[in-house]
């Protein structure tokens, strides 16, 4: 991780991609795509996050240990969400969740 210095060109490219993604997410929000709107918006947000984390934060060039810890954060956020939502999906007495 030391010694690696990202070039400004990488940062500029990342920045431009982020701005484009930002424009896309607004554009998509103006169209009614039914249930697809939310997944697309979230997918774009995840893409943007990936660019920030990998290049601005330099995780791509960081030590394996930092990479593992970043992954652990993501994993446990998924556990929190992933084990709670099934309860709501199977409760049947809540507005919005029951089939």
């Amino acid at each position: 991780m030391h010694g690696h210095i990202s070039s400004p060109a990488t940062f500029i490219k990342t920045f431009i991609i982020l701005l484009i993604l930002m424009a896309v997410t607004v554009l998509v929000a103006t169209k009614d795509l039914g249930w697809l709107n939310t997944p697309i918006a979230m997918a774009i947000a995840i893409c943007k996050t990936a660019f920030v984390v990998l290049f601005f934060m330099g995780l791509k060039y960081s030590s394996r240990l930092s990479q593992v810890w970043a992954g652990v954060g993501l994993l446990f956020f998924i556990i929190l969400i992933g084990l709670t939502i099934p309860d709501y999906l199977t409760r049947h007495d809540l507005p919005g969740w029951s089939e």
């Binding site: 446990f76 556990i79 084990l83 099934p86 309860d87 709501y88 999906l89 199977t90 409760r91 049947h92």
Partner: peptide
């Protein structure tokens, strides 16, 4: 970190979630 729902068995959590936990 995968077991917390055992505190909610009789709290109104769904039976399915109860089974998993």
């Amino acid at each position: 970190f995968l077991v917390w729902g055992h505190h909610l068995f009789v709290s109104g959590q769904s039976v399915f979630a109860g089974l998993v936990f």
